[in-house]
Simulated scan of single mutants.
Amino acid sequence: MKQLLIAVCLFASALFAYAQQETIELPAPTKTGGKPLLEALNERQSLKDFTGKEFDNQTLSNLLWATYGFNRPDKRTVPSSQNRQEIDVYVMFKDGVYFYDAKENKLKLHVKGDFRDGLGSQAYVNDAAINLVFVANLDKASNREAAFIDTGYISQNVYLFCASEGNLGTVARGSFSRTKLPPALKLTDKQEVTLVQAVGYVK
């Protein structure tokens, strides 16, 4: 019993330390393998029953690269209107929110704290390994409508990655709090949350 308690305490301490890092260096993403495209499309679905298990850094790197990484020196895994690349991806853990720097392949701490109450009332967001927050920089976008269309491409990449992995699930959500989330993320009047997406291991 004592050994089990010590192990639990060490695990909890590790998670706390992980969430408090100023920068999370990600390993190079794996860009090969996975299920064939048509099989992944056939298995794509919205799933909400998460285990609460955390992601390791390799899975996180692979997911974020598929979501919005660079597959050419100046182009991403998704299209964007006039190549403005106006969307930023924030990764929300239970103890902090990180900005995904795709060029450097790292996560940079944006704000410390638990801001999941800004994601809405669905309890399953607390069981997801992460919640992705897509933010449009309207001063970069060709127009506001294009920013929402571009968000859709990004969100679909998350779905296809999860389907390809087989043990991951995701659900895109527009029912976040538009009064709580933007100030929690310290967004400017030129930034707008377009969508949030829970991602995690499924039961």
Rank of each mutant, 00 (worst) to 15 (best):
R173H: 07
P182V: 01
L4E: 15
G166Q: 03
L109A: 03
T170V: 09
E22T: 08
L60I: 00
Q20K: 12
A146I: 00
F99K: 03
T32N: 13
E39P: 00
F134D: 04
N57L: 15
G166E: 07
Q197V: 09
L109M: 10
K2N: 08
C9S: 15
D150G: 07
L37F: 13
S46C: 03
K186Q: 08
D114L: 02
Y153M: 08
R76A: 10
L47M: 13
I87F: 01
N71L: 04
K108C: 09
V8W: 13
K35L: 14
M1N: 12
G152N: 04
V171Q: 08
V91F: 01
G169R: 07
I154K: 02
V135F: 00
A19H: 14
T67A: 09
K75H: 14
F176I: 01
Y100A: 06
V196T: 04
A12S: 12
N137E: 13
A14N: 13
G118D: 05
I6S: 12
P79R: 03
V78T: 14
A141S: 10
V133S: 01
K103I: 07
W65I: 01
G69V: 02
T77P: 05
G52A: 02
D56M: 09
R144V: 02
F16Q: 13
Y90G: 01
T23I: 14
K48R: 15
K53M: 11
T32L: 12
A66Y: 00
L187H: 00
V89N: 07
P73M: 05
D56Y: 03
L187C: 04
E165H: 15
T30K: 09
K106W: 04
L132V: 04
